[in-house]
Design a protein around this nucleic acid. Structure first.
Lengths: 334, 334
DNA sequence: TTTGGTATCGATACCGGCACCGATACGTTT
DNA sequence: AAACGTATCGGTGCCGGTATCGATACCAAA
């Protein structure tokens, strides 16, 4: 169109016959501009194809329109839904999410947080409460709203939205015992890095103990939690312990794998063997067998966290870090 | 630590007893600095806790370390895996992905692209080849590497990585006919907005026609593609057309729902009824019934697209837009 | 000694916006 | 007519880096 490079505010101002400042004010709806000027500037902006430059305005206005999001993985549908909730919340605003993936690695998490902070984001959403001490210091000194999500078992740096995994594990144990189950196995994957799954397991065994019961066995797989792993681990654990009447999985993916094994092996679920997972993934309810699960409001968590940040940016005063705990609902299927 | 605000390059320079320029060069490994200065500056940076400011360097260096990513949805595991591939590719570089969600809306897509462009990204990855004319103009004039992903049926603006959905639909039809299927139904969701699903359907019916066959019926659901919708639609379509021996779904989620219906209804799959989907989602192979699917390399697509952009940024010369077509592999399960 | 080359460094001028404050125009009050 | 208030606008100076080019020091070559 105009040859080389993108139009700047100066081009718009020149085309409209006003100063840069007036053009700037007109375009972003700041006061002190006549209606006539506003229209002239808008028209000029359209003509030259002005797009604006967030980098410049963020640098100048010492507050960017970027929201940093740090998650352990995006290939996991749970975090994808969190992202989706965040995207929903900032829809309409000029905010844009920029994300980093930690692969459940604390050192990598530190690097990602550092990197994202260097974009001067308006706020930061990070997964979990168990960052390294260095990372927490970074978050504390950042002087922007920080929201830690998914977990509430611990001390948040600032804001916090999530569920108590410890309580979720406990509640599930109690529900299963109430159903008459007594011979439990636990099947999980990647427990060494997934601190939240560990908290659920702790709550689960604690509650069992309280009821005079114990886990018959525990089987921890290598690698990521997948349906396939769940199917294999279930097959293995049942071969060793055929007397089990209930398996608690670290999440729904594994539990679904267990369900598939049972269908293939002709095991009656939930009569002979009861399966329980965590998350309440949507497809669970369409499964041909009943899986018990704790439904977590993943999208709401993302949405709420983003809203916390939007709010904190609106009001000058830096409020106390906001806190919201959701309680997972146990779904028995039907 | 130092009281109010983050340390800047000037602080580092002062602490190291050199000029801003020398500090800048030392920290980013540009030449023309003595080893001694480099160490002094590094030490000083560590002491004052320097984090850098991407906004400033991007504005100054007229090239940012941001990669824009535009996807129709993140709640869909397919695009989540694409993001995962992108994250993997830029791991180690200073690049950071910033993403926008279009919800399959062309106007919203235009807005998102515009918004992301205003961050002066180093490159842009957008889903599909079927943007609005306005959006395409934006992409063309952006003067940065643009990679359109997932689809190759059409004319890319610049780079392109994906699969031919038309060919995938065709290949699936041919494979199913070869297996002896003759009475086909098509079940899909959201066809009005999902242009790639539409291309698969076109290829599928075209191939059937070529083989002297026709779709017995087509059932298009409202809303998003979910396992639940697949189960319901399958139940409905089988009630109306019990003679069907094959259903082609717009994707694997729906097909899995179909499989669950068949398990619950006691229909022999694949003997009585063959089910075919699209995507090759991981959990398909663990299903207790065999579903046929076209496996697409989603993570590779994301990774390759990001690599295209990294490459284009390395070399000064703006090369021809790069192009890579993957061929989906039909998996019959086993 | 003079010349020339290389390695190292710093001053200056931006990048593209926005905050701040002063200037101007015009209508109103006294 | 003088003084004042309000609405509208523009100049200047940064935000925190980097590109560019010139300056300086030091050593080898002529």
């Amino acid at each position: 169109m105009d040859g080389k490079v993108r139009a700047t505010l100066a081009d718009v101002a020149a085309a409209a016959g006003v100063s840069k400042m007036t053009a700037s004010r007109a375009l972003r709806g700041a006061g002190d501009v006549s209606q006539k000027s506003i229209e002239k500037v808008r028209q000029a902006a359209r003509e030259v194809g002005y797009v604006g430059n967030h980098l410049a305005s963020s640098l100048s206005g010492r507050r960017s329109d970027l929201i940093g999001v740090v998650v352990p993985s995006v290939a996991n549908i749970v975090f994808a839904e969190v992202l989706s909730g965040i995207a929903e919340a900032i829809e309409g605003s000029t905010m844009q999410p920029v994300f980093g993936v930690t692969d459940y690695g604390p050192e990598k998490e530190y690097g990602v947080i550092r990197n994202i902070l260097s974009w001067n984001p308006a706020g930061l959403i990070v997964t979990g409460l168990d960052q390294s001490a260095d990372a927490k210091r970074l978050l504390k000194e950042a002087d922007i709203p920080v929201v830690q999500i998914m977990d509430v078992d611990g001390t948040p740096v600032d804001g916090c939205v999530g569920v108590s995994h410890y309580a979720a594990g406990k509640a599930m144990a109690e529900a299963l015992v109430k159903m008459g189950r007594t011979r439990f196995a636990y099947v999980g994957c990647g427990l060494d890095t997934d601190t939240r799954a560990k908290k659920r397991l702790a709550g689960f065994t604690e509650a069992l103990l309280h009821l005079g019961l114990n886990l018959v066995t525990t089987r921890i797989g290598e690698g990521r939690s997948t349906v396939k792993a769940g199917r294999e681990l279930t097959s293995e654990v049942l071969a060793d312990w055929p007397e089990l009447d209930c398996i608690y999985y670290s999440n729904d993916d594994l539990a679904a794998g267990g369900a598939f094994h049972c269908i293939a092996a002709g095991i009656a679920v939930p009569e002979t063997l009861t399966l329980a997972g965590f998350n309440g993934l949507d497809f669970i309810e369409s499964l041909p067998t009943r899986i018990i699960t704790s439904r977590t409001p993943r999208r709401e968590i993302g949405k709420t966290a983003a809203l916390f940040i939007l709010e904190a940016n609106d009001k000058k005063r830096q409020e106390e870090g906001r806190f919201l705990e959701f309680t997972p609902v146990i779904e028995f299927g039907n």
